[in-house]
Amino acid sequence: MKSSRDFLLGFITGVVAGILTAPKSGQESRQWIQDEADKRTKDLQDQWSKGVEQVKAQVEQVKAQVNQWTGKLQSEGEQHKDKYNEKVDDMASKAHEGVDSAKKSVKVD
């Protein structure tokens, strides 16, 4: 990491020294530096915008997936709830039948 930083610092120093010693006038050099800075700034802004758009797209995909899973879980939960209620109703009916049967057998004797 340090060698990369040193290389980059040396590169930038060399470029600046080259620009400052170039056979252009000071005004031309300053304009060139300004133009390059503007160009690089625009490039960075474009890259940032693309990155933001990619992240937004991925967030939307994740949201869609979560919504899909949530819907599936809710649907399965409803199915299990319905089955549970059916079993409870069935058991209640059988219990009533058993009670009625017991009542009849008690009355008959």
Rank of each mutant, 00 (worst) to 15 (best):
N67S: 05
D43I: 00
V88P: 01
M1L: 13
S4P: 04
A92H: 10
D43P: 00
A17H: 14
V88Y: 09
A64P: 03
V106T: 09
N67W: 02
E53A: 09
K104M: 08
M91A: 15
V99M: 04
E78H: 07
K63D: 08
H80Q: 15
R5P: 09
I33P: 00
G98H: 12
A102T: 10
D82S: 04
Q34G: 01
K103Y: 11
D82Q: 14
D6E: 12
Q34P: 00
K50P: 00
Y84E: 11
D109K: 07
V99D: 06
S105A: 03
A22I: 07
K107F: 14
S105V: 02
I33C: 01
T70G: 02
K83Y: 07
S93I: 10
T13M: 07
E36L: 12
S75M: 10
A17K: 15
Y84P: 00
Q47V: 01
S75D: 12
G98F: 12
Q79N: 12
A64M: 09
D43F: 00
Q79E: 14
V99S: 03
Q47Y: 04
K104D: 03
T70S: 05
K72W: 09
D46I: 03
G77E: 13
K72Q: 14
D109Y: 04
L9G: 02
E86G: 02
K24A: 08
S105K: 13
A64T: 10
G10R: 09
Q74V: 05
F7W: 15
V88R: 05
L9H: 06
S105M: 08
H96Y: 06
A37I: 05
D46L: 02
P23E: 15
Q31S: 06
H96I: 05
E76C: 04
T41I: 02
I33E: 00
A22P: 02
Q27W: 07
Q54D: 14
A57L: 15
V99F: 06
W48R: 09
S75R: 09
G98R: 11
T21H: 11
F11K: 09
V15A: 12
D38G: 07
E78F: 03
K24M: 13
S105Y: 06
S49N: 05
D82F: 07
I19P: 01
V59R: 03
K56D: 11
S4Q: 12
Q79T: 13
K87W: 04
Q47H: 05
Y84V: 07
I19Q: 10
W48I: 04
G26R: 05
G98P: 01
A64S: 12
V59W: 03
Q58C: 10
D6Q: 10
W48M: 06
M1S: 13
G10C: 14
T21Y: 11
V55H: 04
N67V: 04
D109V: 08
G77T: 06
A92G: 06
L20T: 09
K39L: 04
E28H: 01
A92W: 10
E78M: 08
T21W: 08
L8C: 13
